[in-house]
Write a protein that binds this DNA or RNA. Structure first.
Lengths: 193, 193, 193, 193
DNA sequence: TATGAATGAGCTTTCATTCAT
DNA sequence: GATGAATGAAAGCTCATTCAT
């Protein structure tokens, strides 16, 4: 792994462990095992890290989604696998989600958000398009529009469990929330097999 | 207005104007017209402001929702007015949303989130319950569950426009997004008039 | 007890519990059960407390000495009782000793030191004078001079045990130190029965 | 001189000039000619300076003692030179003495006191041991015990002059106090030539 | 007398960034 | 490229003191 990747990985790790507000460049470089100054060879500032982290996180999420979803399965099965994947990533990295929000929001890197998140949108958009082609879901909305709403809904549903909920009985509530989210989604898409 | 309220109001104002990262206690107290030390009479630290701000924002959102929604209107009209209200608040205060996320997430005040957001959940839950009683929406999900998903979906839809999108053509895209969100919601709830 | 005395007593208590550096006027008035502003009705500033505390402490020490020493006993017995008394007070209030040092030293109240400490010096001076009159100790030094050295020696001996030593085996080391101090003193005074 | 030494030296200087209560880290770093942040590279807090200062002061005292005392002189001459040295250091740095007391006392660094003061105790203990070997002083007390008492007595005697006394006629009273202290000491040690 | 909320100067401390090596 | 000691602006926070009640 090269130094730049190492910095991003360490940053994700430290943010996850210590939280956003309390993470410093010093912590990150210590975890990465490099010198303070080396950081600035790869990133012009601390804030410029954020898009890189967001990108890695989106890639990780997309990778998890692709690995979890069986392309040969039916649409409803694929949608269920998709929500499972989103919930799984969120469970592991819920701290980072908040960081991406605030990190991107407080910089001038907002414009990069769309391009960073694009592959994820695209994947879901394709899923929706297939469903429409198979005529198992409604076709009166554009796949891109539906993709946005599906992703927003599923991630916020996961956050409600993993970011704000107490840990007690978390798994049970997660299962319930996933079931409800899927039911909600299927209805929203007008699914009929 | 007492000093504590003044601090929270000023904090919201400054955060909205200057952004999260660049706001300091010093800015807040200057805006509030009080002394630096007075801040610490009411809040033990800077981070402990966050739950108070979140509470005010949720109250403001709920107030906007209540004012916007016509209680005598039909369910579908009420749902549309609800999404309008959420989008309107988000347009005005999108910076604060990110702050609440990161502020709450980075402190140990997460447990307060549920109680802070409770009135909002309750309101939507009642709306859903009415819809179910009128038999215009499906009743195979609990109103509380649906409320969570409705709020999550609508707010994430609004954020996609106001937090991350460019300002160019924002209103047009907002209108479109609202329309799609409402359509999505109506389907998700199995609405039939 | 009037308010002024209450302030001094509370100050001594808080200094003993929390240490010098960490004691605030706020702590003192809370312990005294009075309002913040009331403090300044009795003392013009925080530092002006120090001489009052010193005075009380010296009075307390003298009171302990007078109560402990049997006036009808022989000189060597009285000297032993004196060291016992000094060690006893020091054990109880060692924190205050350091405070008096630094508190008086860092103010412009040093001149008051002599008058505050005068009764103590006088008492020991009388003891010495009696010893000289009874011809059990040497008379080639002035009683006042000897009194100063006796007090300085005994207090520093006590401090070595109670201020800086670890608490483990403290009583044993205190006993030993007292014995050595007394032997040292008796020789220093040229005691012969 | 490295930065750490520079900080300690400057701290001693500023404490001596401005007094304990009024010295700030800001003053110290200005005197040292370094940046504010550099201070915290070497000392985690302001209070953690105290043991380092104490150590330097003890070293300085010991250095003065060693330079002043003629090793080839007789025991009584050496003892006189020792008291001269202690009084000389105290005259120069009486402010620091109070600071060491309060600084060490108000922190959790008390345990370090013994190790900081150890070389001084050792030196006097050796002096005493030599006296005992030459049979010019009594040998019924352990040299370490006597060393403690000698140092405590001499320093408290010096403090009585330089810390609390007025400056008027200070030299005369110092001379007198030194003479009395030496006489006291010689008797205490049972000196016979 | 007594109060205690309010003050604000100034403290300690932090940490993103730089630069000589 | 890599280092890490040094920087210093600026942050969070404290607390002796004041004053309207």
């Amino acid at each position: 792994m090269n130094k730049k990747e190492k910095i991003v990985q360490s940053a994700i790790q430290v943010f996850t462990e210590k939280g956003v507000e309390k993470t410093t460049v010093s912590h990150i470089v210590k975890t990465a095992g490099i010198a303070q100054g080396t950081f600035y060879l790869y990133f012009p500032s601390k804030l410029s890290l954020m898009p890189a982290i967001a990108e890695v996180m989106v890639q990780l999420t997309l990778k998890t989604v692709i690995e979890t979803v069986d392309e040969t399965a039916s649409f409803d099965e694929q949608l269920q696998q998709f929500t499972d994947a989103i919930f799984a990533v969120n469970k592991e990295h819920h701290e980072i989600q908040a960081m991406i929000y605030s990190g991107l929001a407080s910089t001038e890197h907002l414009k990069e958000w769309e391009s960073v998140y694009a592959p994820m949108y695209q994947w879901v958009s394709s899923l929706v398009e297939n469903g429409q082609k198979q005529k198992v879901i409604r076709a009166d909305s554009h796949p891109d529009q539906l993709a946005k709403l599906i992703i927003g809904l599923t991630e916020s549903a996961a956050e409600q469990i993993y970011l704000y909920d107490e840990e007690f009985d978390q798994d049970i509530r997660a299962t319930e929330q996933k079931r409800e989210t899927l039911l909600f989604l299927m209805n929203a898409l007008g699914y009929t097999k």
